[in-house]
Design a protein around this nucleic acid. Structure first.
Lengths: 219, 219
DNA sequence: AGAAAAATGTTCTTGGTAGTACATTTGTAT
DNA sequence: ATACAAATGTACTACCAAGAACATTTTTCT
């Protein structure tokens, strides 16, 4: 029996997997909070059960750690998404469910959002280098593609609907809602981030997405 | 006659305003490119006509410089927005013009977008401290508020339309389009960022915004 | 002209931070 | 049990980068 899934490090037993997970969890949180240069290896290690030595032992250098942290963040979030099943819902409901779910899911994963923000600041350098992440995301859009196809076939969606453009729209709203909360609320007040404000935005976003998916209303 | 508006520093004449502007311009670009901790004062100064000494002379410290750079970025962008006049357009056209304009304007000011991204990483700390910026932005939303009021009165917009929520929607699309380009194109291809892709998104975004502004279509 | 103030150049210092060297302990295979 | 490998602890180094000290030049004001 291996201890690779349990997290206990009673006393002073070796626990490589546990150590790695410990480091990664803290690293995600620190990188997300302060960015790549802003995060300090010493600060990360301070929040850890282990020593700086282990970071370099397992991850090589700060960049290596960052990369693995990014992968971990993506992995966790995409796992959460995969849990959503809308197989037998009719296209319209499937789409609005997906939008509302994405909106909420992003809100629940602010660290992931922040990692992506940081990655964008750095021109997606690490992300581009990660085969692992790219594979994850191809799958992420399949669900949406399938909805589009069904909707088109049934005539409830417009023809030639581009799933990637639609995904862009869904992501834009859901992402911005988390990423820009600090500046937006500083400038325009926090009303839209109250519970009521957020349900309103969620509903509004669903409506907006449905509008561009459905055939244009005749004037 | 003062030399505060001209930028020439022939030979070795003093030119405080020119020096400040020189530094600020480079600072915006560097901070936008590398973030607060990522940007190095020495790198900034290297791209400047002046010396490190002057940065500390005029801006106190790195944070002071960052703050002024942020203000400069906001100022420039809001000036560009103010140039847009849609006073006599009917509400629907005014709104779609505003959306399309914002979409394009953000694209044309990537450094501004990146400064805001960085500010969001840092919880809008500097922005909150800047009276100057907050004032600018109150004005930014007036235009939209006025459109909403007219549209409501004329019955072409739904009742109780919240200008701030609408601004959120417009910003989300326009901002995300620039901020997340690196990761989005790394994951899903660059098609949506070609000229054709962008016009499609712009049109789609206008349509989405109009849909949530107009009265709901009867089923 | 001369003094004071503003603006700029040059050099140095000090703290922080990524990464390393060296030593030791724990687990595993023969 | 012993040797070897994997995992971990502790102390150190080297450098980078923010900011300061000190010196000089330009401008302005009387």
């Amino acid at each position: 029996m291996t201890n690779s899934t349990t997290d206990d490090r009673r006393g002073w037993t070796q626990n490589p997997e546990g150590v790695k997970r410990d480091i990664l969890a803290v690293a995600v949180s620190e990188f997300a909070a302060r960015g790549f240069s802003g995060a300090k290896v010493d600060d990360i290690v301070a929040r850890t059960q282990t020593s700086k030595r282990m970071i370099y032992y397992y991850f090589g250098d700060k960049k290596g750690l960052y990369m693995r942290a990014l992968e971990a963040a993506y992995l966790k979030v995409r796992e959460g998404e995969a849990a959503l099943d809308l197989g037998d819902l009719p296209p319209l409901e499937a789409l609005s469910t997906l939008v509302a779910f994405t909106f909420d899911h992003h809100r629940e994963n602010p660290d992931f959002i922040r990692m992506v923000m940081i990655e964008n600041i750095h021109q997606a350098e690490a992300l581009s280098a990660s085969e692992k992440i790219r594979k994850l995301n191809v799958a992420a859009i399949d669900k949406l593609r399938e909805i589009c196809e069904r909707g088109e076939k049934e005539g409830v969606f417009r023809h030639g609907l581009d799933p990637i453009a639609l995904h862009w729209q869904i992501s834009a709203a859901s992402f911005f809602n988390v990423s820009n909360r600090p500046t937006f609320s500083a400038l325009f007040g926090a009303d839209v981030f109250t519970e009521d404000g957020q349900s309103h935005l969620r509903k509004q976003t669903v409506e907006a997405i449905l509008a561009i998916a459905q055939p244009e209303a005749p004037l």
